[in-house]
């Protein structure tokens, strides 16, 4: 498979996962805003933007409702805004368009349809206050795409790159979300951030579609250690970091058949090691240490896996890859 094609499949999948994550996060966040005092609106928005790796476009003079509209609009539609939902979907589609020959027609049609629906909804529905319908469309569209991908595309090399894109994005998003959560707690220590601490944890879990799954495991009693453990270390929940890293390692493993250079590569080594760390570390140890440092470390290692993979399969130096 051409490196460019693999790269496009990877980013197609990553951008779509990003759009879905942003939609889910915004949905939970806007719901949360409805229930709380106006005091910490800015802080809570900052946290959302932080967890999406972007700076908040802030106009300090704006009235709260105006500010909310501006920020929601930026995160949904602003093409100049890195990571806006529409921009992510548009980039996913652009990547898909460049490799249309390598994905099933059903996949292309689904992604194209999602893009066209989103473009139509731009402005129109949101002004009518139908943001939730919009988020639902994005989430459904992304889930449908994943289902169609699994059902109609050969589970070959390209499919594994699609898996890699999805799980890299998901792991990094979850880690970053946790980081922002702890960072927010630290910064305004002792102050209840507009809402009860309990609801903060509920929102965090919901942002990862994890609330119901958590309740089935731990009941609705939420304590920081259990919630963190669930999002970081749960072996079976598909949005947990450990699950994601496992999926990444398995995909890399499967690729070694066709990409011998991956065998024993840096990417596999770091992924295997990170997987072991998450498998054997205990939550009490993690909570006793500096949690944020621990999370940052996972981010760094994830990025290292991505880069190592990129350097082995996509943008390798010529001398390393000449046929023997």
């Amino acid at each position: 498979m051409l490196s460019r094609v693999a790269d496009s499949l990877y980013w197609m999948s990553r951008y779509l996962e990003r759009a879905e994550h942003t939609a889910r996060l915004l949905n939970v966040h806007l719901h949360g805003l409805l229930d709380q005092k106006a005091d910490y609106v800015t802080e809570r928005w900052e946290r959302v933007f932080q967890s999406l790796y972007v700076d908040m476009p802030l106009d300090p003079g704006a009235k709260p409702q105006v500010m909310i509209n501006t920020l929601v609009h930026a995160l949904m539609f602003d093409p100049s805004f890195h990571g806006s939902i529409l921009e992510s979907i548009s980039r996913a589609r652009q990547n898909a368009r460049e490799v249309r020959e390598h994905i099933s027609s059903e996949m292309w049609e689904q992604l194209n349809r999602l893009f066209l629906v989103m473009q139509q909804m731009k402005e129109h529905d949101i002004r009518n206050g139908n943001a939730y319908g919009f988020f639902q469309q994005v989430k459904d569209g992304a889930h449908l795409f994943q289902g169609v991908t699994d059902a109609t595309n050969s589970h070959d090399q390209g499919w594994y790159f699609i898996q890699l894109g999805r799980y890299f994005e998901r792991v990094l998003a979850t880690v970053r979300l946790l980081e922002a959560h702890f960072e927010g707690q630290r910064r305004i220590e002792g102050v209840v951030l507009g809402n009860t601490p309990y609801m903060e944890w509920v929102d965090l879990l919901k942002s990862c579609t994890a609330f119901e799954a958590y309740c089935r495991t731990y009941s609705a009693n939420i304590d920081p250690a259990s919630a963190t453990s669930f999002l970081l270390l749960h072996p079976e929940f598909p949005h947990s970091v450990r699950f994601g890293i496992g999926a990444i390692r398995r995909a890399l493993d499967s690729l070694t058949d066709e990409i011998p250079l991956l065998r024993g590569s840096e990417a596999l080594r770091v992924a295997g090691r990170l997987q072991a760390t998450l498998q054997y570390d205990s939550i009490s140890e993690i909570m006793q240490q500096n949690v944020q440092q621990y999370l940052r470390d996972i981010s760094i290692r994830c990025t290292a896996i991505h880069e190592a993979m990129h350097n082995t399969c996509i943008a390798y130096p010529v001398e390393h890859a000449l046929p023997s």
């Binding site: 498979m1 051409l2 490196s3 460019r4 693999a6 020959e101 090399q157 790159f161 690729l255 066709e258 990409i259 011998p260 250079l261 399969c313 996509i314 390798y316 010529v318 390393h320 890859a321 000449l322 046929p323």
Partner: peptide, 26 residues
């Protein structure tokens, strides 16, 4: 046959290769 763009190809020692995930292919 593969559909390639200019950026998929490179010339090394006066030979043309394409970048595949499994390394360069003549």
């Amino acid at each position: 046959i593969p559909l390639v763009e200019g950026r998929d190809l490179l010339v090394h020692n006066n030979k043309v290769y394409m970048r595949t995930t499994a390394g360069l292919r003549r």
